[in-house]
């Protein structure tokens, strides 16, 4: 077998699998979204129906809030962990990054343990603090899986910062605060944008957490799920899926062109 033939043969299994189980199903999904009486106008319907529009706005707002909170918190922690060496640092780092691959359902359950009816907060202050099934619970759940992702991206970026830049600023008399503003944050900016987009896209598509919390807040993945399973409104479920998929993909694509890496979505 010649070299070229061998290299081509190496791609065949991937090509077959991807065509059968990714390309064709996605084509089918788009096709299915056109199969109601509304045709392609189903996409207009999404924007005209208050329930869908509200869901869309809710999802975007929660995701945006989660991304910003995760960025602020994880950047602070990331800088702290990257710049300080102390006993237990490794352990702390593990605690902060291990939830990376926890499924959304488990995170939902953990939030219930914190803020559910039988949760920690309600036990400490009985009868008052139940937040798990509300917007707050959803926000905290999304924050739970966003923090490790942002933290890893930020720490990788901090390690790539040239320490000489900071030293140069210091020799020129800059205060620590000015160094953060003038040197560190501009250096981290591309990674922060990327990490923010990853957190946003992940939150937009998160299903397991919302599913477990069974909140009264409609988010897009939950609506897709109910449209498909309960209402059997397949065209609408497909259209919403296509919309959601395009938004998250576009965001991650832009993010990757900023930072050149991808952290797993999911959650």
């Amino acid at each position: 077998m010649s070299d070229r033939t061998f290299v081509t043969a190496c791609l065949v299994p991937l090509a077959v699998f991807t065509l059968a189980f990714l390309a064709l199903p996605l084509v089918r999904l788009v096709q299915a979204s056109f199969e109601s009486e509304a045709g392609w106008q189903i996409y207009l319907q999404i924007l005209q129906t208050p329930r869908y529009l509200e869901t869309l706005v809710n999802t975007v707002l929660v995701s945006l809030a989660v991304s910003l909170a995760a960025l602020v918190l994880a950047t602070t922690a990331g800088l702290f962990l990257a710049r300080n060496r102390f006993i237990g640092r490794g352990l702390l780092l593990s605690v902060l990054t291990l939830p990376l691959a926890f499924p959304g359902v488990v995170i939902g359950f953990l939030i219930i343990l914190l803020g559910g009816r039988q949760g920690l907060f309600n036990q400490l202050l009985p009868g008052h603090i139940v937040f798990a099934y509300s917007l707050t619970g959803l926000f905290l759940g999304y924050l739970y899986f966003s923090i490790p992702r942002v933290l890893l991206t930020v720490m990788a970026a901090v390690e790539k910062l040239d320490p000489a830049l900071e030293e140069a600023a210091r020799t020129l008399g800059a205060s620590p605060w000015r160094i953060v503003i003038d040197v560190i944050l501009p250096g981290l900016a591309p990674s922060l944008v990327a990490a923010g987009a990853i957190a946003f896209a992940t939150a937009m598509g998160a299903f397991g957490t919302a599913f477990t919390l069974a909140t009264n807040i409609d988010v897009l993945p939950m609506v897709i799920y109910t449209e498909f399973t309960l209402s059997a409104n397949i065209a609408m479920a497909s259209a919403l899926s296509v919309l959601l998929g395009m938004v998250t993909w576009a965001l991650l694509y832009v993010a990757r062109s900023f930072a050149g890496t991808t952290v797993a979505a999911g959650g």
Binding site: L14, T18, F21, L22, A23, L24, P25, L26, R28, L29, A32, A201, M204, G205, A206, F207, P221, I224, Y225, F228, I234, A237, S238, S241, V242, L244, G245, T248, W249, L251, L252, Y253, T262, A264, A265, G266
Partner: peptide, 25 residues
Amino acid sequence: MLEEFISLPLAIPGLALALALLQLY
């Protein structure tokens, strides 16, 4: 482009992918 395409399942929510698979198969 091929790498980008096979990476779609990282970006597209699992729910949407599952829906696509269910409808075809």
